[in-house]
Each structure stands twice: as structure tokens, then as C-alpha cells.
Simulated scan of single mutants.
Amino acid sequence: MKPRRSKNRYSQDFKKKIVQEYIQKNISFPKLAIKYELSNAGMVANWFKDYTIGRKLIPKDERWM
């Protein structure tokens, strides 16, 4: 039997930092996932989608810097 993984919760500031690094430095989702020891690149892609489309992570006045 495999040990159960607990879900990590990441702060909005942490997500914002990673999304901004993706935008500003053009680092791929997989490389960011490795750099920050995230479980998968899809998580970073979802945060990016939220940031650019859903606009959940960044206050309105800070978007599209």
C-alpha cells in the first residue's frame, strides 16, 4: 500500500511569484515546477490561466504590468 500524499496549499503570494517569473523570464511550466519542487507542471499552468484569464490571483490594479 502506498503512503497517502497530503495536499499542499500555496499562498497567493507564492502563486503570484511563480506566474510572474513565467511571464517575465519565459521559464517553462515544467522547469518552474522542478525549481519550486511542485508536484507537476499542470499546477503552474492552472495558476497562469487563473492569473491571465480568471484573474483570481492579482488585484485588478496590478494586472498586465
Rank of each mutant, 00 (worst) to 15 (best):
I34R: 08
V44Y: 00
F14G: 05
L32K: 00
P59M: 01
A45N: 15
P59I: 03
G42K: 12
M43Y: 07
I34C: 04
K35N: 04
Q24M: 11
S28W: 01
I58V: 07
R4L: 15
Q24E: 14
Y36E: 00
S6C: 10
V19D: 00
Q20T: 04
K17S: 11
L57N: 05
K60M: 04
E21W: 04
I53S: 13
D13A: 15
N26Q: 10
N46A: 09
K7R: 13
N8P: 09
K56N: 10
P3R: 14
K49D: 11
F48I: 12
V44E: 01
R55F: 06
N40I: 01
S39E: 11
K35A: 04
R63T: 07
I58T: 09
I23C: 06
V19T: 10
L32P: 00
Q12K: 09
I23A: 06
K49A: 14
M65H: 06
E21Q: 09
K17L: 14
G54Y: 01
P30E: 01
V19S: 05
A41L: 02
R4F: 12
K60T: 09
N26A: 08
R4Q: 13
K25Q: 11
K15G: 03
K7S: 11
M65Q: 07
M1H: 07
K17T: 12
A41I: 00
Y51C: 12
R55S: 08
N8C: 13
K15T: 03
E21K: 09
M65S: 07
P30C: 04
S28P: 04
P30W: 03
E37C: 07
K2S: 13
N8R: 13
F29E: 02
Q24W: 06
D61N: 12
R5N: 12
R63H: 05
R55Q: 14
K16G: 08
R9V: 15
P59V: 03
L57A: 02
N26F: 01
N8W: 09
